[in-house]
Simulated scan of single mutants.
Amino acid sequence: MLETVGEMFLTGYAYAAESRTPAEAEERLEQIPRRFRGFAYEGAGMGFAVLDATPLASGGKVAGFLAGRGDAQIYLVYVGVGWAMARLPRFLWSKIHAPDPLLRWLALDGYGFHQAYFRTDQYVHGQYQDPRFPWPADAPPGYANRVIDQGIGRAMWFVGGTDVDVVTDMIHKFPESRRGDLYAGAGLAATYACGAEEQELRRFRERAGQYRPQLAQGCAFAAEARVRPGLVVPATEIATEVFCGVTPEQAARISNESRPDQPIQGDVPAYEVWRRRIADQFVSLGGVSP
C-alpha cells in the first residue's frame, strides 16, 4: 500500500510536468483509482508549483489547477505546494501560489511531511525545528513549526510502516508540547491513507490518550479531503468511526462548519482556531475523552 501511495504521487507529479495545461493533466489524474487519486493530485500540486517557480516561467499553473478540477482536491493541492517549497531554494518561495489565508497553512503540512520522510534522522529522531522559519511572513512567532509538526506526524505514519506501536512510540519521544500536533497529523494519515485494520486503529486511539481530540481533528481533516471530491472508501468509514465516532460525511461537515468565516488577527491564527474548534466539537460529542 505504501509503495502504491508513493507511485501515485510521482505519477501525479509527472502528469503535471508533461502536460501543456492543468486541464490536460486533470484528464489523466481522473483515471487514477479512487483510493489513490488524492495522492496523485498532491503530486501534481507539487509539480505545478515547481513549474511556477522555474526561472523565466510565466506562472499561473497552480492557479489554473485550482480553478479547475483541482478545486475539489484543494487540500491535497496545497499540501503538494508545500512539497515544492521543501525542494525549492527559499528565495523562490515568493513565487509560491497559496492565496487562501486559511488553507495556505496546509503547505507547511506538506513541507513537514517531506522533511520528516526524507530527513528522518534530523526531523523525527533528532526532533529538529527551525527557530527562524520564514514563511508565511506574517505568522505569529513559532506557529509555523506547529503546522510543520502536523506534517511530521503525518509522515510518521509512513515512516513507522503504519505500525501503531512504532508510530506512537516515536511520537511519545517528543516533548509533550509537540505531541498534539503530531497526533493530528498521524490521525490524518491513518484516515486518508489507511493501511491499518480496525483493531489496530482502536489501539492507536487507545494509546493516544489525552491527545484523542487532536487525533479526531486530523481524522476530520482527512474525511473532508475525501468527501469533498467524492473519494470515500470503506477504510475511511472505519477510521472516522474509530477516531471520531461518526461517519465520514458527519466528520467532514464538522470540519467544514468549524472554519472561521474571516481571517483572525492576533497571536492565534485562523488555522489554529479551526483546528481547536474541530477538536472541541468531538470532545462535546463525548467520543474522544481519554
Rank of each mutant, 00 (worst) to 15 (best):
S58N: 15
A63I: 11
P101M: 01
A107V: 06
A235C: 15
G218K: 13
D169W: 03
A137K: 03
G126I: 12
V242Q: 03
A220C: 03
Q217P: 00
H125L: 10
P134N: 06
Y143T: 04
A25V: 01
F9D: 01
P234F: 14
V166L: 13
G151E: 07
D181A: 09
P89F: 01
A63W: 10
V242T: 04
Y41S: 04
W274T: 08
Q250I: 05
F158V: 02
T236L: 14
P175S: 02
G126A: 11
A86E: 09
A225Y: 06
L92F: 10
V164R: 07
F48T: 00
Q129A: 12
Q199I: 11
P269T: 00
D181G: 07
A49L: 09
R226P: 01
Q265I: 12
P263R: 01
Y75V: 02
G209H: 05
Y271G: 03
G47D: 01
R178W: 11
T236D: 15
V167I: 07
S289K: 13
E200Y: 01
L215Q: 05
V232T: 07
Q210P: 12
R90L: 05
T120K: 02
A225Q: 07
Q210K: 14
A17G: 04
P175Y: 05
R212G: 10
Q210C: 10
F158R: 12
G187E: 03
T168E: 11
F174K: 08
A190M: 07
G180Y: 10
Q217Y: 06
A139P: 04
R154W: 05
R28C: 10
V5P: 06
V268K: 11
F91D: 15
R90C: 04
